[in-house]
Nucleic acid binder design. Sequence first.
DNA 1: CTTGTTATTGAAAACCATTTTCATGTGCAA
DNA 2: TTGCACATGAAAATGGTTTTCAATAACAAG
Lengths: 167, 167
Amino acid sequence: MKMVFNNKRSFMKSEFEQGHHWCRHRVKGCGFRMTIGREAVLDVLSRTEDHLSAEDIYMLVHETYPAIGLTSVYRTLDMLVNIGLVYKFDFGDGRARFELAEGPKGKDHHHHLVCTGCGRIVNYRDFIDEEVALLKKTEEGLSKKYNFAITNHLIQFYGLCEGCRKK
Amino acid sequence: MKMVFNNKRSFMKSEFEQGHHWCRHRVKGCGFRMTIGREAVLDVLSRTEDHLSAEDIYMLVHETYPAIGLTSVYRTLDMLVNIGLVYKFDFGDGRARFELAEGPKGKDHHHHLVCTGCGRIVNYRDFIDEEVALLKKTEEGLSKKYNFAITNHLIQFYGLCEGCRKK
DNA sequence: CTTGTTATTGAAAACCATTTTCATGTGCAA
DNA sequence: TTGCACATGAAAATGGTTTTCAATAACAAG
């Protein structure tokens, strides 16, 4: 899986040309240039179900594209969050975590269950439909009453997983 | 409203002895000493509907009890969060915000509507009952399926308030 | 009311995720 | 191919929060 590239161009062509067309178009459509670093960050995000921190992403991208700098990872993530391609979460451990807004197989709306003991995060899709239905209704009511244009919501459950409960 | 005290003891007796019995008992019941600083932090939290940052609290406590240090405010808040007397929130502006778990007039369960433009936060109680009912159901399902002991949940809506939308 | 133990405190320094600066490099439209 | 605005990496700065450590104070026991 790990590969070494002689130069940046060979890296770019080899594996990324295939996927993430929509992402790339979105980035360019928003007036940003599609660079190797940005492509690599998107690629890392698209290959995982985990909730990676900026440094996690930096280290993963670094494996195949060592020229990347942590600063650029932060800047790229910031841009991707701004154009809505990536979600940024705070699970209470002092570092932001990131997730592709649209999963590899299309829409993949889920919410999070966080273990306050070990930090483990479960993506759950159960009850999502009911939750989203209620959220939509709530959203409409709140929009009207408080005159907000609601763009997003966040639902998380906190608790202790089995392992952490035994301590 | 602003008062100056000659010494710490007079400060303590003058206004706090009356309120927050439950808080104080809880703190002591958990094996912690009830100090003037802790009392003052609880007092500030109990007098507001706002979502104060540690520094906000420090400055407010400082008005009547200048001997307090920012460090102690952080330590007190951490302790209060740990024993469940205070909730800690992240609204995405890089600083934690705190809120008494039980409002001045008893239970006051609400969720938050956050303006991503100016950071304004609305405490809404509308739809809370329906939300809580669904949350409870979801909670049970998740507990069973993922073997979590769920202790808490978080719901927030993000959007732009009227003022911020005009820009 | 004293006293002794031990938790708590304030100040300063350390920490650490994130942001900014700035000179260099590069995507891409022309 | 070329030019230039945007993007980048390294290093330094930022800023909220935590740690360190010696001094202080809460409070249980006497």
